[in-house]
Design a binder for these strands. Sequence first.
DNA 1: CGTGAGTCGGGTAATTTGGGGC
DNA 2: TATGTCCAAATTACCCGACTCA
Lengths: 75, 75
Amino acid sequence: MTREVPLPETSEDAPETLLTPAEVAQLFRVDPKTVTRWAQSGKLSSIRTLGGHRRYPQSEVMRLLDAGKAQREDS
Amino acid sequence: MTREVPLPETSEDAPETLLTPAEVAQLFRVDPKTVTRWAQSGKLSSIRTLGGHRRYPQSEVMRLLDAGKAQREDS
DNA sequence: CGTGAGTCGGGTAATTTGGGGC
DNA sequence: TATGTCCAAATTACCCGACTCA
C-alpha cells in the first residue's frame, strides 16, 4: 500500500516521466551515444542525475517522434 | 489508530516535507538504491528515522532536479 | 499483534559518460 | 555534419536476506 498523505506541493509539481538514454535510443533506433549528442547540441532537453547520467523528458521525446514519423521527408 | 503525518503547518516552523527513497527515485528515474548512494556520498542530505530508514527534504530534491536541467536551445 | 510493502546492507552485472578516431 | 564503434572509468541496476514502516 502506497503512502497516502496529503503531499503539500510546495509549488507546481510536474510529474514528468523521464526516459533513460537506452530507452530513447531504442525509440529512435539509434545508438545511445547519438542521443547523448542530441542533448549536447541542444536538440533535446535533458536532466542530470546526481551522478551525471542523463534523463530525457518522455513528453518531448514523444513529440519529436511524432514530428517526424507521419512525414515522408519534410513538409 | 492515530497517524503521525506531517500536518499542513499554518504558521512558523519550516513545514519541510520529507520524501521517501522511492519517491525521490521516481523523480530522477533511478533506482531507490541509487538515491541511497547519493545520501551516503553526501550529494543529498537525509534524515534518519529511528529505525534507520532515510527521508529526504522535498525542497532540496526539487532544487537538485532543476539544477540538472538542460533545456533545448530552441523552445 | 500480524501483514504487506518498503528500505535497509552488501555484492555483482549492466549502462552511461567522455574522449578519440574512422 | 552526422552516426557508429572502441576504450577506460564512473555510475547505476538487479540480486539476496533481514529489518522497518504503516
